[in-house]
Design a protein around this nucleic acid. Structure first.
Lengths: 237, 237
DNA sequence: CGTGCTTTTGAATAGTATCAAGGCCGGTGG
DNA sequence: CCACCGGCCTTGATACTATTCAAAAGCACG
């Protein structure tokens, strides 16, 4: 069960890149007052596919995967998100958009209702512009991704998935080496392939000295190697 | 060469869904005054890949394809757009984003500089929110697309490309039947495959009575059939 | 020490890209 | 008016890549 604990207000929150920080002091206080904050344990759904979303979720700290299934069972990772990112905002319109969000780590997440958010947008142009730019950038990433995915081999897609995961979640092991904690299945859902192919690709990368898999955790030894692999697809991410 | 002709002001423009219409009367007048308007003939580049974009283009009337190439030669259609749509806005930041836009038909297009646009955003919350929602929706479409493309067969991708083209451009022949005017190559660039596969799929669709190809123009006889084909991938577009 | 889950590896299959050739159509020039 | 040419479209054959199916190995957990 989500732990409620003590609520961290927007004023004392140190997640510097949170969009809400763009609002005026009064509005920051207002949002802080009315926002809902929950700590979701690892593996927990923040919101599920199919159920309506009545606002936006801002990640104060933690990691989240945004998922969406094609057929029954066939899941797909649409996006990864961490501190300061926004998930679940589906606009003021009420069309359905079947996505869910799952915590990859224990995550403290603030919920702001659509009504409050819309009011804040109307009264805080910088805030609105910031969110607009966020969407604009995400759109570009997504377009770039689908454009390149049409041309990439499976191995390149897996390389992309590894690189994207690291660049988005910025995980490190105890030695400070970049690494990622997703399962083969999760990497497959991100790369648009299956767990077997991911395993094969990971073996290849290991033999090439790019990574060092330790159980399910994958240490990245040569970030440069991945950039080289993906160099035909320039200006990625 | 682009024909400049007589400029249609925002006040007298009848493109009802143009975002600029959301601005206040004063700002509408201001944008109208400073905007640049050009009629691009069919086939002409509105802006080219690689060159910086200094503002946003609003399509007053016409049809545009937004393209992006992976390697040399390998082009890709990222998006189609028609009346009222916006293309080329790359945000205030100056990261490069290698896309180009080509007119599919003679198109009258208004250009608004980044500076003016930003000022308008700051002073017209409804305008900004509208643009934000546009990005949000496009992002969803793009995510849905890349999610489904990973699972679809080539034939389904071609079906999607045909349906998307019709729903976006809304072309009709002299009898009022829905039809599309893209070449096989263009459909391939939209579907993420090659012209040969598009041709094969089109033959299948013809044999199933879904379409009636007349030269390069493709008449759609049964829109329902395409929706059925794509029904595993619900709530598309 | 088994049980179940994830990962790895192998072999068979199916689907798609590529290559190649021929057909159709419109435009150009003789 | 007709022949030729080039572009686009269609169709077939082939090769290859990736998915699927299957099985064994590794690992955590009770």
């Amino acid at each position: 069960m989500p732990n409620r604990g003590i609520k961290i207000s927007c004023e004392e929150c140190t997640t510097f890149n949170c969009f809400v920080k763009q609002a005026s002091p009064e509005w920051l206080a207002k949002i802080s007052q009315f926002k809902n904050q929950v700590v979701y344990p690892k593996g927990q759904y923040i919101f599920t596919e199919g159920s309506p979303v009545f606002g936006a979720y801002f990640i104060l700290s933690g990691q989240v995967k945004v998922v969406s299934s094609v057929f029954s069972g066939k899941q797909n990772i649409v996006r990864l998100a961490s501190d300061g990112h926004m998930v679940g905002h589906k606009g003021i319109g009420h069309e359905t958009y079947n996505i869910g969000a799952v915590a990859l780590q224990d995550s403290r997440i603030c919920f702001v209702s659509n009504e409050l958010l819309y009011d804040a947008f109307l009264n805080n142009p910088h805030f609105t512009i910031e969110v607009m730019m966020f969407y604009s950038k995400e759109l570009r990433k997504s377009e770039t991704r689908s454009k390149y995915f049409a041309q990439m081999t499976t191995e390149e897609k897996v390389a992309y998935a590894i690189l994207y995961t690291y660049e988005t979640l910025q995980d490190h092991d105890e030695d400070g080496l970049p690494c990622i904690f997703l399962s083969r299945q999760e990497l497959a859902e991100l790369a648009g392939t299956n767990a077997e192919q991911v395993s094969r690709s990971i073996t290849t990368f290991k033999n090439d000295g790019l990574i060092s898999p330790e159980g399910r955790c994958v240490k990245i030894l040569q970030l440069k190697g991945f950039h080289q692999l993906l160099s035909p697809y320039d200006q990625f991410i």
